[in-house]
Write a protein that binds this DNA or RNA. Sequence first.
DNA 1: GCGGTTTGCTAATACGTATTAACAACCATG
DNA 2: CATGGTTGTTAATACGTATTAGCAAACCGC
Lengths: 342, 342
Amino acid sequence: MSSSSSPRPSTTHDVARLAGVSQATVSLVLGGNPRARVAAATRERVIRAAEELGYRPNIVARGLVRGRSYALGVIVPDLANPFFLEVVRGIERVASTAGYAVLLCDARETTPARHLEALRARLIDGVIVDPLGVEGLPADSLTDLNLVVVDQPSERWPGVASDAEGAGRLAAEHLLALGHREVAMVGPATDVHSFRMRERGFTRALRAAGVALPSGWLRRAPATVAGGEAAMRALLPRRGSRPTAVFCTSDLLALGALKACATAGVAVPGAMSVVGCDDIEMARVVTPELTTVAVPARELGARAARLLLRQLDGRGGETRPGRVLPVRLVPRGTTAPPPTDP
Amino acid sequence: MSSSSSPRPSTTHDVARLAGVSQATVSLVLGGNPRARVAAATRERVIRAAEELGYRPNIVARGLVRGRSYALGVIVPDLANPFFLEVVRGIERVASTAGYAVLLCDARETTPARHLEALRARLIDGVIVDPLGVEGLPADSLTDLNLVVVDQPSERWPGVASDAEGAGRLAAEHLLALGHREVAMVGPATDVHSFRMRERGFTRALRAAGVALPSGWLRRAPATVAGGEAAMRALLPRRGSRPTAVFCTSDLLALGALKACATAGVAVPGAMSVVGCDDIEMARVVTPELTTVAVPARELGARAARLLLRQLDGRGGETRPGRVLPVRLVPRGTTAPPPTDP
DNA sequence: GCGGTTTGCTAATACGTATTAACAACCATG
DNA sequence: CATGGTTGTTAATACGTATTAGCAAACCGC
């Protein structure tokens, strides 16, 4: 029912028969290795025959003999976060132009360990892990795997990273320059390195300026809009003091914070300044537009993919740390000097 | 450098040696077919040996002999659109619990034809195509492929769909009930069936109520925030009449429209009502919250995956059209009666 | 005990490609 | 012309699994 009389796809044997050569010769001509010594005339005949039959190499068979699948795995914490999606797109572009397929794994759907199991069974050539607790993975399940980590410096695996600490610092300096002294911070509780570093950069810059971050003003929430909303609500008590500015270590959190302010009738940026981090597209959609720190997500992904591909080609030797990708503050509408009349 | 002395993963031969049986027996015990006749004691020995060696079947090898790869391809128009992402998540959950991997293809990165080529080479078992012009694909490249289409009724392939026409109708009826008579519509120019149907449902309901849709108020724009913004700007002339409400056939467009209104100082919903379609998460993030039509994206994906899997199992016979998934209006903050003083 | 059936296992082969050792043909050199 | 090297092609094998035909043993009824 599904498929009718499908003409079995042609193989190297078919091509060989038509070209009047052996299968081995066909493989030599068509299978990668361009420097194989084959007479020009023969090569020509083979190519012509292959075209005539519409021959396409069977990547599975090739993978079986070469022990490769020409596919990469990518594990991200949460695809619904546009930031990670952007990283994935960077990876995908590089990978696909190099002839590699990408198997996407959302850590929220299954545990990374299970994902790895499934990937390994498919002879995945390598895996890119976005800032997810790789350290927590079963170590033995990783030893024989080509792995590149994103935004998560590690002794054991090569990786690429953005200047996460710098991102936090930029946010702090921006708020300090505007005159804020009563600031809060919202970040996820997960042990994701880049988030940790953003927090550290922020708190350090604050401390360097002699500004304290009361423990009550450090809110933990999942890196989602709903999380940001809840955290912000907690920062807006009915009575008592409240911060004049808040730094969210993810734009999704910041969007949630804005939402909470709107609901509570707190003017942004008049009564409350908000700074996000990532610079996702939605940051420019809300009104006022979100002040944030731009992180080159796509470039991060692209670099990770290139690094992994180099490694697969054996040219992995040059695993120098790799320049940390710079971030930059994007001042927009959600930040202003603190209200003069508290 | 990358990987140390990796102990080659064990094969059926290794298990056979340890268990003192032949490779064939191991394959009979561990390879799918549970009704193979193998003595209980032998089966036990094999399983024990497999566990001891940590044996995992090589899916690539299995795929080669069975002509299957246990992987699905999914082609979507634009992953950056949360709606399609949600569809993908629905697919992924069903597929992965059934042991299938998912190869994601974003139509914006490469042409669908190229994607199909790459998928076919990997012995992909089946493909799910989101409302993308399948009709425009090279027909011969599809004949021998198990394919399921989403939101795109077709004679040639089974599929699942949401009530796209109903979505448009609901939006129209909502605006009409509020008293709007001067309405506009924004939708993408691409030939995507569900968008077409949403438009049709909208315009038909309008016509049925005796309300005309001037051609100038039917704006075409790519289904992105930027597209919606541009379209809305065009609907807000410096002078002359403007609509009192607009229906955007995608939430992203609607968000852009809201943005344009905010920039132009047009009050929503006071001076302009906006209705979207999809009910993505961001619809509830903006202020005021977006009135929209909820479409069960995840369920759509899950059903498509189940349909495809059934087909792969040969149980494809029952390819009844499949119930059209209902949609529902979600009235929120961006719609209100038209301004009384025009 | 003897045909016949069932049960349990294995040898052999296939899937489609890559790779290597071996071989034939050709060339150049002396 | 013998020798040695180079070039072009192929036969054979491997990758790890699934599957089928077939074999040996056990079991059956009589």
